[in-house]
């Protein structure tokens, strides 16, 4: 029978690993995905830098990225993962496929959020002489920030789920722990505890996301 101490001793580092995986993937997927989403808006129909060809290519790429199942993505990017992190297993390596999985999702969420910015507000700023860069800086990002934050919470929750899956094939974290102890050794207690931490984590992320978004909405 596993003691409480042992359970905590196993859960704590796994929780930290999962948290780190999610946080870093969230960071990198936004670092790349938000600009991609902005490009979709700028080049899209009615955008201030409308460009049909560019939009079609970006749009198709995003759709493609979103349609690849995560398990297949994870396996197929192993060479890239190795190149970037020097290894293909463990939580650091898992950040690469997690980022790639979230990136097109973030781009789409960003596009949707920015498209809800009032057309008249954008025109008002154009009439003040705002350049495209001014529009991004003064209008698109600040005006859609509440939606972007809500979207970030959704992405983070998805990443928690994916990180558990990444864990199943050696990514570390809570998913890894649950599989190793629960599935392979039938130590149900550890598995249940891991899942409980995941559930609590998701609740906290959603709560925080909602709170911050509402506060930003004024």
């Amino acid at each position: 029978m596993p003691s409480i101490e042992r359970t905590v001793a196993l859960l704590w580092p796994a929780t930290i690993e999962t948290f780190a995986m999610v946080a870093w993937s969230l960071f990198f997927s936004h670092l790349l995905g938000v600009p991609l989403g902005l490009l979709l808006v700028l080049t899209g129909p009615g955008g201030v830098a409308e460009n049909r060809l560019a939009y079609r290519i970006l749009d198709a790429a995003v759709n493609f990225g979103r349609s690849v199942p995560f398990v297949i993505l994870m396996v197929s990017v192993v060479p890239l993962t190795r190149f970037l992190t020097g290894t293909s297993i463990g939580p650091v390596a898992a950040v690469v496929p997690l980022t790639l999985a979230a990136l097109p999702f973030v781009a789409r969420l960003t596009e949707t959020a920015v498209l809800t910015v009032d057309r008249g507000t954008i025109e008002a700023c154009i009439s003040m002489g705002a350049s495209r860069l001014d529009l991004i800086r003064f209008v698109f990002i600040p005006e859609s920030l509440p939606s972007l934050v809500s979207g970030m919470a959704v992405t983070a929750v998805n990443l928690v789920g994916y990180s558990a899956m990444a864990g199943a094939i050696g990514g570390g974290g809570l998913g890894d722990l649950a599989i190793r102890f629960g599935y392979q050794r039938w130590e149900t207690e550890i598995m249940v505890a891991s899942v409980a931490v995941l559930v609590a984590g998701v609740q906290i992320i959603q709560l925080l996301g909602d709170r911050i978004s509402r506060w930003l909405r004024r």
């Binding site: 008249g120 507000t121 025109e123 700023c125 600040p142 005006e143 930003l216 004024r218």
Partner: peptide
């Protein structure tokens, strides 16, 4: 403009 078009974030 007719609808003021102020930025809600400012």
């Amino acid at each position: 403009f007719q609808g003021y078009n102020l930025l809600n974030s400012r």
